[in-house]
Design a protein around this nucleic acid. Sequence first.
DNA 1: ATAATAGTGTCTTTCAGACAGTATAGT
DNA 2: ACTATACTGTCTGAAAGACACTATTAT
Lengths: 303, 303
Amino acid sequence: MSNKELLNRDGLTLEEFLNQYDSNKYEKPSVTVDPVIFTVANEEEDNYRKLPKKVLKVLLVRRSDHPFINCWALPGGFVDMDEDLDNAAYRELKEETNIEDIYMEQLYTWGKVNRDPRMRVISSSYLSLIDSSKVNIQAGSDADDVKWFSLKCQLVKEQKTITENGYIKEKIHQLTFKNHDEVLTSLIKTTKTLEGRITSISREVIESKGIAFDHGMIIAYGLERIRSKIEYTDIAFNLMNEVFTLTELQNVYEIILDTELLKANFRRKIAPMVIETNQKTTTGGHRPSTLFKFNPNWEEYSL
Amino acid sequence: MSNKELLNRDGLTLEEFLNQYDSNKYEKPSVTVDPVIFTVANEEEDNYRKLPKKVLKVLLVRRSDHPFINCWALPGGFVDMDEDLDNAAYRELKEETNIEDIYMEQLYTWGKVNRDPRMRVISSSYLSLIDSSKVNIQAGSDADDVKWFSLKCQLVKEQKTITENGYIKEKIHQLTFKNHDEVLTSLIKTTKTLEGRITSISREVIESKGIAFDHGMIIAYGLERIRSKIEYTDIAFNLMNEVFTLTELQNVYEIILDTELLKANFRRKIAPMVIETNQKTTTGGHRPSTLFKFNPNWEEYSL
DNA sequence: ATAATAGTGTCTTTCAGACAGTATAGT
DNA sequence: ACTATACTGTCTGAAAGACACTATTAT
């Protein structure tokens, strides 16, 4: 505990010090928040028997002003002086897209000097998975338009170079964003360097078509984060309706992990996280499936 | 790509827009970086046969000015306008403690409104594990003193409350920091809330003795992060010398995870991460042990 | 010889992966 | 009957946990 009677080397008490403190002594960067909102949605299906395919989608807003005018960006904005960083993320999301009452977690804070052509901007990104059928998106004041874009992430180049003292691994991923009208792409390079025993990872945007700022990279990182968290947490259930079939749940896992899973094994693995209800689907054309709900007490350990 | 010829609704080109843009339209928060540097060091041992015990330590600097004068803090400081966020962390660490040539990763960005009594400060914390025998710490200009403090983290209270729509789990941890002269403590509350299907986690400092700002909480979070990362990455090797015995390595894991591990199993598990050298220890009093070094190619997958 | 650490062998249990099989609705 | 999905049983092999045993040094 700091003691109010203590004097600093200028002979000031804490109170005196705070009164004379000039917080504008140094120039300050601007701080923004950038929510990355993912969902998994159904695609149309013609065959009455087949189940709808699922796609991963991300929420973007069209920029109505410079810089990157008409490009698509994450629904973020500047942090106010009197709001917590987390709250800024919720407020901006609400303002720009009308989404509220969801949970977001901090993803990463991006602090390269020239991220924004206007000025020095440091941005904290936030991550959320939501059930898109539950929210009602709607463009806000700063944005022309808010839309879900389907997202594909593809490895287009991989390279390993051995150096005297370790190696350099480079990967280039192409992100493809699609909606009814537009196709946007972004090339992201990830570099993993090993030098002696020291590993470091850096990321950069190589090319961006229709995506503002470094937001392609932020989305790629968000996707990477979900892929790892879906393995050991219950985040996937944020994408589900109140009740769901195990096949739907499995499809969500498959879309996010971009692999096929074996049904029997998947069911064994997620069994503790779900509770069977006495409802069944009535979609028809095949055997009806049992509806399940999330089991909030699946983990009786940790925090 | 934004097209320079596009005009915004005020009829300005990008260039014109940037020229007239006033980046000081809104008040800005200050941004700092706070490196959390951990090491595992040997404690003295009298018995010639016994191996030295190991302790987890964290690096703190004594504050020489208000606020929290004479308290201990993380060796951080303000981000300059012309340096990347990451670089700010390295620069501050070098300035305050003389440590350089290490790898740090971003830990979390703390953005509560009243974190700092001087003004609004948003802080990005960075995390590193280092071999303390390799670095030469030395107090810098802003700090009276730089010291390693041994760190103990103890669960002192745990509570689960069932609510109508979920539960609230609270945990209180006590951090105890010790060096030859001082004992500092910090009580950290972690709250995990489940409301419907939405889980959220929040942290706060309940009490702080001798630790400045919310730095106790940042350190606790850093410790949590290492505990989880040590399980699936090679970060532990940052704490080791160039060559080491498997028992030393095991002790490092045991200190960080705060559990005892079975020797045979531990060796099986880390076998792919290490390479046997032809050197042996000569400490005596018992069978000499083989020295190993890190195997940089232990993971032939992922990035 | 003794105390202390170094290092190995192996049993058991658990869990992940693979795959084959049975069940049941609507048309 | 057919098609598409729902759901279950079980084999296999790998990894995790537990524990007992042998080896080797300075004093």
